[in-house]
Simulated scan of single mutants.
Amino acid sequence: MTKLFTPIEFNNVQLKNRIVMSPMCMYSCMEQDGKITPFHMTHYVSRAIGQAGLVMTEATAVVPEGRISHEDLGIWEDGHIDGLKRLNEQIHSYGAKTGIQLAHAGRKARLNSDIYAPSALPFNESSKTPTEMTTADIDNTIDAFKDGAKRAREAGFDIIEIHGAHGYLINQFLSPLTNKRVDEYGGSAENRYRFLSQVIEVVQTEWDGPLFVRISTDEYADGGNTLDDILYFAGQMKQQGIDLIDCSSGGVVPASIKPYPGYQVKRCETIKQETSIATGAVGLITTGIQAEEILQNDRADLVLIGRSLLRNPYWPKAAADELDETLPAPKQYERGWK
């Protein structure tokens, strides 16, 4: 059997294959209440029917001011649990596991309200200047991640991913480009990691399942985190019991990026080999052959598929056909599956 369609287990949760629907914002909570809508049900459940092994929801805000936009999903109150629970039940009924990405946008929030960041630096000239977080703000935000993890457990998710990439709040703390603090949360790599470390610690008090973290492995800017910094963070995460690092890149500051197929995989491979932690590869992975190459050569343990799964909810079937692999059909679709 190809590695792409070989099961894999993380902390007693088994995925039936290595295909993950990557978290992608849908901007579809039109009531601006952060709650699941019929669109979300259709969108995510269809990828489970399409046989992805893990379906990950979009960045889900732990506080209202942590949304990227007013239309984002939320998990900042108990009223969000029921909708997420119904979503999980439907996804599970098709044999997929579910993941939630707990997130806070920090200075990249595009909201009418005040926004917050480690330092009072706007993302670009057209962005709002954030309020620099006090230690009380930091403590409250860490508690919000804890509460989000508790609600994720109650909603029936199998996996939590902490969003530490793409220039959002945790990434802002990690990067010297966006973190100019002079207290215990700024300066050295150890201090810049402190916020993420404390988020991991509190999430683990409410969550004993698989725990992933997405990070930006390259900031594409002078003065940003070096590969040595990224390897240090990865080593710390391994010590804290993180099960997998989801290796993306960019988003910390405006940058010109010229992506090509698999452009983020090399750093993903380096993190896996240098720190012996499981990794997920993401970024312009479009074919079954490409995904299989990444896995067969031990460059990553999972492949996260984004735009290709937007174009085709049945991308796993297309990949299976390409690799001459038999993929079981949902019974409703057996007539058209072969």
Rank of each mutant, 00 (worst) to 15 (best):
G66D: 04
G66S: 06
G66M: 06
R67F: 11
R67T: 08
R67K: 15
R67D: 05
S69D: 10
S69R: 12
H70I: 14
E71Q: 15
D72M: 11
L73Q: 06
L73W: 04
I75S: 03
I75H: 02
I75L: 15
W76D: 00
W76R: 06
D78F: 07
D78E: 15
H80F: 05
I81C: 09
I81K: 06
D82Y: 15
D82C: 10
D82Q: 14
D82S: 13
G83W: 08
G83E: 02
L84K: 03
R86W: 12
R86A: 14
L87Y: 10
L87I: 09
N88W: 04
N88L: 05
N88C: 15
E89T: 13
Q90H: 13
I91E: 05
I91S: 03
H92R: 12
H92F: 11
H92W: 11
H92E: 03
H92M: 09
H92Y: 09
S93T: 13
S93Y: 13
Y94T: 12
Y94F: 13
G95P: 11
A96W: 04
A96V: 01
A96F: 03
K97G: 00
K97C: 12
T98G: 03
G99K: 00
G99E: 05
G99N: 09
G99Q: 00
I100M: 12
L102H: 04
L102R: 02
L102D: 01
A103S: 12
H104F: 00
H104W: 01
A105N: 00
G106E: 02
G106H: 05
R107V: 00
K108M: 09
K108I: 07
K108E: 08
A109H: 02
A109T: 02
R110I: 13
R110Y: 08
R110D: 11
R110G: 09
R110M: 14
L111C: 11
N112Y: 13
N112F: 10
S113K: 14
D114F: 02
I115Y: 01
Y116R: 01
A117F: 03
A117E: 06
A117N: 04
S119V: 01
S119A: 06
S119T: 12
A120V: 03
A120Y: 01
L121W: 01
L121R: 08
L121F: 07
P122L: 08
P122R: 04
F123M: 02
F123T: 00
N124K: 13
E125V: 12
S126H: 14
S126C: 11
S127W: 09
S127R: 05
S127C: 10
K128Q: 13
K128N: 04
K128H: 08
T129V: 14
T129R: 13
P130S: 05
P130L: 02
T134G: 05
T134I: 10
T134K: 04
T134C: 04
